[in-house]
């Protein structure tokens, strides 16, 4: 059900972001980022619904968190990069 992945460099900002999003009522999950969206090696991603995109980015900005990348998950596990 989650089709938007916000990548973060490591687990701590991921956890901080998850907390901030959940406090704002935005449903999300913290995952190890699939390799396809982690070009520098291991990373974490906050997975959420694309309809929550703008509000989620606002919440993360208020928490001083800037995702590295924003990816839309397509069929068959493919990802397409989206602008921040």
């Amino acid at each position: 059900m989650y089709d938007l992945y916000l990548t973060l460099r490591s687990v701590t900002p991921g956890q901080k972001g998850r907390e901030a999003l959940r406090r704002a009522g935005i449903s999300c999950e913290l995952l190890r980022a699939p390799r396809a969206i982690a070009p520098e090696g291991c990373a974490y991603a906050l997975a959420l619904r694309s309809r929550d995109r703008d509000r989620a980015l606002e919440v993360l900005e208020r928490a001083a968190l800037r995702p590295e990348g924003l990816w839309l998950r397509g069929g068959a596990g493919s990802f397409e990069r989206s602008g921040l």
Binding site: S10, V11, T12, E40, C42, A43
Partner: peptide
């Protein structure tokens, strides 16, 4: 190892990693 940015051979700049 930090579990982050594994392809880079320098330590990550961000804390706490």
């Amino acid at each position: 190892g930090t579990g982050s940015r594994s392809l880079e051979q320098s330590m990550p700049p961000e804390l706490p990693d």
